[in-house]
Design a protein around this nucleic acid. Structure first.
Length: 571
DNA sequence: ACTTAATTAG
């Protein structure tokens, strides 16, 4: 659209002779209606500003033309000019329901939840009655508590069965984790729309109830890509990465719908979790060959994460270098990638290269991990300080975890212990395990035992800590200590979670538990295991049975190590 | 004229 004609004193004749605006020109419209028509055609903020200027030039009093006023508000809001669109609202003498609703929607969408409620209250104070549009807008700003209050208003006005409103309610209850209320609203809907079903699937998935989610998903006749994405991501984010991959494969076998950016991001996350490099690579190639799916910053970040976690750092770096419009999340992923591969200096160097982006708490987790892995004590301590002082980021428990691991590995055990005791927050089992592990590593059994006894005394225990404590006792041959820990475990009914190892072969992920005999090639696997064992023993391998927690004879301990899940997977 | 579901980093 041309830029200057709108600023001319009369209405832009040129505009009205083009084909696009011919319909408007055929009628003798009031300038306000013509301008409203132009707003609908506008594609940039500049055009909106010019139209606004034309409105002022024509001395059009906006609140006398509610439709024009509303369209202008919407146009500003849709281009992210929130202040401008709200200014329009506040200049309007008595806003009608449409403008109220649009304004509530604008602030809600932009996260100004308090503002949304102020507007809603102002609406209620006028004699205007909110409608279904208003509620689907205000619900976006509701917590579960305020959602319940709004729910009563909805019921009072008889709008509870409107599909938009009901979906909004399901969404509010889903965010608050109130599945029961969400189900109630959902079940009462006269007909389940695709969107409301998808909202309900999201609710189930977020609760980790993937079975209910899947049942609902399977019951949908016409599934769109959003419902597939919700289901795949639901699996991926709640401990079922294999199911996520399988479902993605199922999607590929159906002709519709086509995967999009979000589908591949969710699936790549599943690949990262199980180290499925081949599947991840396949998806990368699929994206490159697809004309629909763009390698945008989010897709690239998922690829960086996948390649890093699947052990291919070079490919992660290569994707990072080709990532367009890198945001802090992309930088964080690459920093963490370097950190987990032990390239500490590269991680720190990358941090120095970030320009014009505010680092987040996660940036510092990556950096501190890099320092911990590389034994860069001075740098790590300085980093921890600058996080608080320079960047104003409050350390979370995870940051302390990195710090303790950093000091612990460097043998600065006393200092690490002091930091834990002086932390503002309660140390978690990860931190204690890390420090105990360091005590064992550096042979400081006095401090190690002191901590172990403190933990047992304080009842800060779980299977993770028991394992480390017992290992600590075992390494100094304190079998009384080991026995004490064991009986405590029994007494409290703590069971060590069975370890599972997975390995990817020819695009299929195989799972193994210790002593597993479920696998189809079980016989061959055990035969291979026997050969490997002979080989390593002939090279002087002696099994270290100290870490075996079960109460077994030495030979049995060896046997239990022999069929360790990782060994099975490798065989 | 105003309205509904999904995304990455530890």
């Amino acid at each position: 659209m041309a830029s200057s004609p709108l600023l001319a004193t009369s209405l832009p004749q040129k505009q009205l002779t083009t084909t696009a605006t011919a319909t408007a020109g055929e009628f003798r419209l009031h300038p306000a209606e013509k301008l409203a028509f132009l707003i609908d055609k506008s594609v940039s903020v500049n055009e909106v500003l010019q139209i606004h200027a034309a409105i002022l030039r024509h001395n059009i009093v906006l609140h006398r033309y509610p439709v024009l006023n509303l369209k202008l508000h919407r146009a500003y809001a849709s281009h992210g000019k929130i202040r401008q669109s709200l200014a329009l609202f506040h200049q309007t003498i008595s806003p009608d329901l449409f403008l109220f609703t649009a304004a509530i929607n604008t602030v809600s969408v932009n996260g100004l939840h308090d503002e949304a409620f102020l507007l809603y209250i102002r609406l209620l104070s006028s004699e205007i009655v909110p409608n279904e549009f208003t509620f689907s807008s205000i619900l976006k700003s509701c917590s579960t508590e305020s959602g319940k209050a709004i729910h009563t208003h909805i019921l009072k006005l008889g709008l509870g069965l409107d599909p938009y409103v009901a979906t909004g309610l399901v969404d509010v209850y889903a965010k608050g984790g109130d599945v029961i209320s969400a189900e109630k609203v959902f079940d009462r809907m006269p007909e389940r729309s695709l969107v409301s079903s998808t909202a309900m699937i999201t609710c189930y998935a977020n609760q980790g109830n993937v079975d209910s989610a899947r049942a609902l998903f399977d019951g949908i006749r016409e599934r769109d890509i959003v419902s597939w994405n919700v289901m795949i991501d639901g699996y991926a984010q709640h401990g079922f990465p294999n199911e996520a991959l399988t479902l993605f494969q199922k999607l590929l076998t159906e002709s519709k719908p086509n995967p999009d950016e979000i589908t591949v991001v969710a699936t790549l996350s599943a690949c990262s979790q199980i180290g499925a490099l081949e599947s991840g690579r396949w998806i990368h190639v699929y994206i490159k060959n697809s004309r629909r799916i763009r390698l945008n910053v989010r897709v690239c970040t998922a690829l960086i994460d996948m390649y890093s976690k699947c052990g291919n750092l070079e490919e992660a770096v290569s994707v990072f270098n080709d990532t367009p419009r890198k945001d802090i999340v992309a930088w964080n992923a690459m920093i963490s990638g370097y950190a987990m591969h032990g390239y500490s200096r590269e991680a720190l160097r990358l941090f120095d290269e970030i320009k014009g982006l505010q680092p987040t708490d996660i940036t510092f987790i990556g950096l501190l991990q890099a320092c911990a892995h590389g034994g860069l004590v001075k740098e790590g301590l300085r980093m921890f300080e600058s996080m608080r002082e320079e960047y104003g980021i409050k350390p979370k428990i995870e940051h302390y975890g990195c710090l303790i691991s950093l000091l612990g590995r460097a043998g600065m055990l006393k200092r690490a212990y002091e930091i834990i005791r002086n932390m503002k927050m309660e140390a978690d089992s990860v931190i204690w395990s890390s420090l105990l592990g360091s005590c064992k590593l550096h042979g400081d059994f006095v401090l190690g035992k002191e901590i172990a006894e403190y933990l047992i005394g304080q009842n800060i225990v779980n299977s993770g800590i028991y394992v480390v404590v017992s290992g600590l006792y075992a390494s100094v041959n304190d079998y009384e200590g080991v026995a004490k820990v064991r009986s405590l475990m029994k007494e409290k009914g703590i069971v060590k979670e069975p370890g599972i190892s997975t390995i990817e072969i020819d695009d299929k992920v195989h799972e193994f538990r210790a002593g597993d005999r479920e696998h189809l090639s079980c016989k061959e696997i055990y035969e291979m295991l026997r050969k490997i064992s002979e080989l390593v023993k002939s090279h002087g391998y002696v099994p270290n049975t100290d870490a075996v927690l079960q109460d077994l004879e030495e030979a049995e301990k060896e046997q239990s190590l022999q069929v360790h899940s990782e060994r099975l997977a490798i065989a």
